[in-house]
């Protein structure tokens, strides 16, 4: 994986909706520093934002505090994002289920967007930690 000078390997923020913007900003910096195309960077940002929104809205709903941590790596022709948090586990099969939102539904598009924007999405629950690993091939 390519080193990213002047940028931290990962960033942690409180698991709140307003803080999702800081994760997105970090990703944009990494993409700019690495010469990732604008549209690829946008797809990754959109997927990240949807995933982090879910963490803040659902994974940490009713929890007093908590963090989410993003690490981004670029190399071997791909961009790899890992989003970790210690909130509630994601329901089994959530990232595999087909998108079910009807055309005029105001909600329910997040998971479908994540899958559309990325090549691989893997979810692991390990030692009380949610790990969402999201990979986008770079052209």
């Amino acid at each position: 994986m390519m080193p990213l000078p002047d940028l931290p390997a990962e960033i942690s923020v409180p698991a709140r909706l307003i803080e999702v913007r800081r994760l997105a900003e970090h990703l944009r910096k990494v993409c700019r520093a690495s010469g990732v195309s604008e549209m690829t960077a946008f797809d990754c940002e959109l997927a990240l934002v949807e995933a982090a929104n879910n963490v803040a809205e659902h994974g940490h709903a009713g929890l007093a505090e908590g963090e989410m941590t993003l690490s981004v790596q670029i190399g071997e022709g791909r961009l790899r994002m890992e989003l970790r948090d210690s909130g509630k586990p994601v329901p089994e099969g959530q990232f595999l289920a087909p998108a079910t939102a009807s055309r005029d539904a105001p909600r329910g598009r997040g998971i479908g967007i994540i899958r559309s924007c990325l090549d691989t999405v893997d979810y692991i629950r390990e030692d009380g930690i949610n790990r969402l690993i999201m990979i986008k091939r770079l052209d």
Partner: peptide, 16 residues
């Protein structure tokens, strides 16, 4: 500059 599914959902609600 950026819109996510929640922002889009507001537009869909508006249309409904």
């Amino acid at each position: 500059d950026f819109i996510d599914s929640t922002g889009l959902g507001v537009l869909v609600s508006m249309l409904k």
